Simulated assay, not measured.
Amino acid sequence: MTGMEPLAPLATAGRRIETAIIGGGQAGLAEAYWLRRAGRECVVFEARKRVGDQWRERYDSLRLFTPAWADGLPGMTFPAPRSSWPTAREVADYLEGYADMIGGSLWAGVRVDSVEMLGDGSFVISTTSGQWHAQNVVVATGSDAAPKIPEVASQLDPGIRQLHSSQYRNPAQLLPGPVLVVGASQSGADLALEAAQAGHETWLSGRHPGELPVNERIAGPFFWFAQNYVLTLKTPIGQKLRPVIRHGGSPLIRTKRADLDRAGVHRTPARTTASIDGRPTLDDGTVLDVANVLWCTGYLPSYAFIHPAVIGPDGYPTETQGVAADVPGLFYLGLVFQRGFYSHLLGGVGRDAKFIAQLISERALSRNTVAA
């Protein structure tokens, strides 16, 4: 591939590198692609032993909400029929192939424990393979560091099987009997429908987030257009909806209310907030005698390993278009709605990655000019 000659492998920790990329998912790999195209040195640290495992750990029936033609990272189209809807396993394999295509230095199975800014403006990165030093750090770990589970979970009868959506794979994990799904956004609607179709009486608890009033084949291209050109920080509606979307407010695209109703799912806007005699209780007073609870309540971001890291009241880093506030050389990539709805999606993150790669190249040129 033109302009992508392999870099010399980084065989030992402790080397000074220009840019460290933390996270080997779609965001980190896209950043490595653009940096290498620009001739900049970088290394990617991925905590999992195999690239793509964050997708292999998702539930079996998961599919993307955009067709394959809109799901490619820069430099490599998605290897599936253009009108198909890729599965999570297909995405995982695609990312693994993309990493092979890029070549260069990707350290899989290496966890970053801390990033410290030094007095000279560089960074020391402490990892499970030793220390590294870098002029720039791109944090591409995403916003799903830890499952978010309400406190009421600890009050439920231990005989109830509880699974967060990150632990759920398929209905075979469920005990016989009714199922309560907590959280009515995308994953909650998907898993409620799946549980009901598997023969479980199913409750879906949570405010309905709205839905696109078109079928999947129309919704996919519409969603792609909206995420790239409407729901961005350049538009008033994008600026208004950003905090809503960051807290799970995306409308349903594939599984709709009509699908849930046909399957016999009991939908309720009431929230699951308490426990009576070990049974989950809704905030309207309804007590549910269920055998299973699926927590589709999202994730919590975590940036405690970065020093300094300025975190806003919404739990996200304080940044502007991925540039960290008051920390030169520190960048974020792949955040939910970083510059637009597209920012955390497979087919969109490459745009932000290219933008940050340009900033890093300009920063290097500025340093070289000063040094001269």
Rank of each mutant, 00 (worst) to 15 (best):
Ala8Ser: 15
Leu10Arg: 15
Ile17Met: 11
Gly24Ala: 14
Gln26Arg: 07
Glu31Cys: 15
Ala32Val: 02
Tyr33Glu: 11
Trp34Gly: 00
Ala38Pro: 00
Glu46Thr: 09
Glu57Tyr: 14
Tyr59Ser: 02
Leu62Tyr: 11
Leu64Trp: 12
Pro67Tyr: 09
Phe78Ser: 02
Phe78Tyr: 04
Arg89Pro: 00
Gly97Asn: 11
Leu106Arg: 12
Trp107Glu: 09
Arg111Trp: 08
Ser114Ala: 15
Leu118Phe: 00
Gly121Arg: 06
Ser129Pro: 00
Ile149Tyr: 00
Val152Leu: 15
Leu156Thr: 11
His164Asn: 07
Ala172Lys: 12
Pro176Ala: 11
Leu180Thr: 04
Gln186Phe: 04
Gly188Phe: 09
Asp190Thr: 00
Leu191Ser: 00
Leu191Glu: 02
Leu193Phe: 00
Ala198His: 01
Gly199Trp: 01
Glu201Ser: 12
Leu204Arg: 04
Ser205Cys: 13
His208Cys: 08
Gly210Ala: 03
Gly220His: 10
Pro221Arg: 05
Thr232Asn: 09
Thr235Gln: 10
Gln239His: 08
Lys256Cys: 04
Ala263Pro: 03
Thr268His: 07
Pro269Asn: 05
Arg271Gly: 00
Ala274Tyr: 10
Ser275Phe: 07
Asp283Gln: 08
Thr286Cys: 10
Val287Pro: 13
Asn292Asp: 04
Asn292Tyr: 05
Thr297Ile: 09
Pro301Met: 08
Phe305Val: 08
Ile306Asn: 01
Gly312Thr: 06
Val323Met: 13
Gly350Tyr: 09
Arg351Lys: 14
Lys354Leu: 14
Lys354Phe: 03
Lys354Asp: 13
Ile360Tyr: 05
Thr369Lys: 14
Ala372His: 13
